[in-house]
Design a protein around this nucleic acid. Structure first.
Lengths: 346, 346
DNA sequence: AATTTAAACGGGAGCGGTCCCATTTACTGG
DNA sequence: CCAGTAAATGGGACCGCTCCCGTTTAAATT
C-alpha cells in the first residue's frame, strides 16, 4: 500500500521558509527565532508530521536503537530481563529491537544480520544452546558495534558480560540438599557449550567434594535442554540399582518437568526424592510442591547490561575494558526439598 | 563510538566498476553479467559488506518491518503470540520491532510514535488497560499504515481485528461451574474499556440467565487488573453474608492470585469454593489445584493477525474490508473446579 | 557615517543506496 | 560494411533529513 509522508519541505513551503529553518525548529537548534519555531512546531503538529528516523539515522550514523537477541521467549526469564532492559534503554533515549532465536543457531545468525542491516547502535546477546560458532557475532566487534552478553555468554569473545555466579548458586543449592540429609544427588546438566551449564556443574561437583561425597558419573546426565527428554532421563535415574534421592536440574522448566514426572510415578517429594531447579521461574512458586531454586536478579541483569552497552556506545574510542559483571544469586528453599517450609506468614 | 561502514562505493572502487553495477549484483537485477555479479558478491562477502536497510527503506519507502505493541510481557500470553507472529512475519521477509507498554497509556503513545518514526510498514496492536483515547493509533490509519488489533482491540476503529469468542468461552465456563452444582458464582470483571472484559462479563451474565440464576450485583467486582488488589476483593467476597461458592476471574494471573489467597485462608478448592480463570497461562496446569480455564489458540492468533497485516500491506489501495476474525476457545477443566479429574493417563 | 557583530535564515552537499535514462560494446542481419 | 538490437554498464537524480557555509538584515560600536 502506498503511503504519503509529511516532510519538512511540506512545512517549509506552507510557511514560506527554507527547510533548513524548519529543521532547526524541530531539532532545538539555537539559531532560530522563537516565533518562527513556534509556528513550525504548531504546523508540524497540525500536519501530523513525524520525523523520519531512517533519514536522520542515515546522516548521523546513529539509530538510537539497541538490538536484543535472546534464545527463547517461553520461560519467564528473558521477557523479564527484556522489560528491564527496555525501561533502562528508554531512559537514555534508545529503542529496542527484540528477536528470539527459538534456540536455533540458524535463526540467531539471521537475526544478527537483521540487526546489522538495521544499523543498531549496539546489541545485547544471549546465545542459543546450539551456538558454537560465533562469526555472526564477531562481525559486530569488527564493525565497532558494541556488544554485551548476558546470561548465555560467549566465552571466547572479549567483550563486556553480565552474568550471575552460577557456580556459587549451584554450590549453595547442593549444600542445602546435603544438609537435608540427601546423599545421592543427581544432576541434569546442560550442554557444555553454555558457560552457565559448566558453572552449575562445577558448583555441584565442588559441593559434593567439600562434603566428601564420592562423585558418581552415573548420576550426571548430559542433557540438551529439550524438555521432551526429561521424562526418559528421570525414569532412567530411578531405574538405577542405586537410584538418587535428589535431582538438581540445570534450570526451572526442566525441574518442573521432573516434578511432573515424579508425581505421576507416585514417589513423594521431597521425602523419597528432592527436586531443585535454577532461575526461579514464574511457575515455580505456584506449583505443588513449590520448587526450591536459585533466584537470579533479573531486573538488575537487564538494567546493568543495558547500562554497560550504552556506556560503550557513548565512548569515543573502543577501550576494551570488557569488564564482566558477576551478580549474586539467592537460594530459595521451598517444599520440593524440605517437608514443610516454616509456616509462611505473608 | 564512531564506526565505519563498507558501502557499495567501496566495492565499486575496488572492482573499478560503477556503484550501479554493484547495486545490480546485490539485488539480483537481470541486466548484469554473471561474472561481474560473482566477483561483486565474493568481494562483498570478503569485505563484511552489509546492506544498509536505512538507505534502502528511505528510497523504497518500505522498511519490511512490522511493529508490535503489547500491553505487558509478564503473563505467557503475549510472548507466545509474538513468537508465532515473528515466525509468520519472517516467512514473508518481515522483521519485527516489539514494544511493551507496561500497561501504561503514556508508554503506549510513546511506543506508537517510535514505530511511526521508524517507518514500520504496519502494526500489530493490543492496547493497555488504561487506553481510552486512540489518537496515537488513528495516526497510523491517517497515514495509510495498516494496523491490525488482536486480543485487546479498539472497538471504535474500523480495521482488521483478531479476537477470540470471549463471550462463548465465558458462557461455557460458567455453565460448567453451574453443572458442578455451584449456585453463587462471583466474577472479578476486568475494566470495561477492554472488549474482552465486556465479552467475558456478558458470557457470565447470559449463562446465569439461561439457567435462571438471579444475578447478584454484589458478586460482580469491577477490577482494574492490578494483582495486588485481588486479596482484598477475595476477602471482601468471603465476608459477605451470603458468600460465593465459585469465583470466575477475568484472567489466569488473577485466578492464580485468588487461589493463593483462598489456600492461605484455608478453604478447600473446589469443595468450598471453585476457581476459574481465562487464557490458560503456563503456570495454570502446574499449580495445585490445577486451574480450570479457557484456552486461547495463541499460535493461531499471532499467525492470523500477522497474515492479515501483511495482506493489508501488500494491497495496492486501502480497501477497508476490516474483517474481524473470531477464533474459538476451548474449555479446560481441571481440579480447581472439579474434585478429581478423571484419572489422567497421558 | 562607516564598520563590526550577531541573529536568523537560505542554499546545497551528502548519508548509502535504487532506479531511470543514457551510453558503450558486441553481435546480428541485410 | 553499416544500421539495428540487445546486453552490460555508467551517470546522476533522489529518498528525507542534517549540517556547514554563505548571505541578509538590523542593531551596536567606533
Amino acid at each position: 500500500m502506498k503511503r504519503h509522508q509529511t516532510t519538512i519541505l511540506d512545512i517549509a513551503k506552507e510557511l514560506n521558509i527554507s527547510k533548513s529553518t524548519v529543521s532547526r525548529a524541530l531539532t532545538n537548534h539555537p539559531n532560530i527565532n522563537p516565533e518562527t519555531k513556534k509556528k513550525v512546531l504548531e504546523l508540524a503538529e497540525k500536519m501530523d508530521y513525524q520525523r523520519n528516523m531512517l533519514a536522520i539515522s542515515l546522516i548521523t550514523n546513529k539509530s538510537y536503537t539497541i538490538g536484543v537477541i535472546v534464545p527463547e521467549f517461553i520461560s519467564s526469564y528473558f521477557p523479564k530481563v527484556i522489560v528491564s532492559a527496555q525501561i533502562e534503554a528508554s531512559k537514555a533515549g534508545y529503542n529496542i529491537i527484540i528477536s528470539q532465536s527459538n534456540e536455533s543457531y540458524e535463526t540467531e545468525v539471521k537475526n544478527a544480520k537483521v540487526m546489522l542491516a538495521n544499523q543498531v547502535d549496539g546489541v545485547l546477546v544471549s546465545i542459543t544452546k546450539e551456538t558454537r560458532n560465533y562469526d555472526h557475532l564477531k562481525i559486530f566487534q569488527r564493525k565497532g558495534i558494541p556488544i554485551v552478553f548476558f546470561n548465555r555468554i560467549c566465552e571466547e569473545m572479549i567483550v563486556p558480560k553480565v552474568i550471575v555466579d552460577d557456580y556459587e548458586g549451584a554450590f549453595k543449592l547442593v549444600e542445602h540438599l546435603l544438609q537435608t540429609g540427601k546423599k545421592r544427588i543427581a544432576h541434569l546438566a546442560g550442554p557444555d557449550s553454555l558457560s552457565i551449564s559448566k558453572g552449575r556443574l562445577n558448583g555441584y561437583l565442588d559441593a559434593l567434594k567439600k562434603h566428601h561425597i564420592e562423585i558418581d558419573e552415573e548420576l550426571i546426565i548430559p542433557y540438551d535442554l529439550s524438555l521432551r527428554k526429561v521424562k526418559i532421563y528421570v525414569k532412567h535415574l530411578l531405574g538405577l540399582e542405586n537410584p538418587p534421592d535428589a535431582i538438581f536440574a540445570v534450570n526451572d522448566p526442566t525441574a518442573i518437568e521432573v516434578v511432573q514426572t515424579i508425581k505421576k510415578i507416585g514417589l513423594r517429594i521431597p521425602e523419597d526424592i528432592a527436586i531443585a531447579g535454577y532461575s526461579d521461574d514464574y511457575a515455580s512458586s505456584l506449583m505443588e510442591p513449590k520448587l526450591t531454586t536459585v533466584a537470579q536478579p533479573v531486573d538488575e541483569i537487564g538494567k546493568i547490561a543495558t547500562q554497560m552497552l550504552i556506556d560503550q556506545i557513548n565512548r569515543e574510542v573502543a577501550d576494551w575494558k570488557a569488564t564482566t559483571k558477576m551478580l549474586k544469586t539467592k537460594l530459595i528453599i521451598r517444599s520440593s526439598t524440605v517437608k514443610e517450609t516454616t509456616s509462611n506468614p505473608e
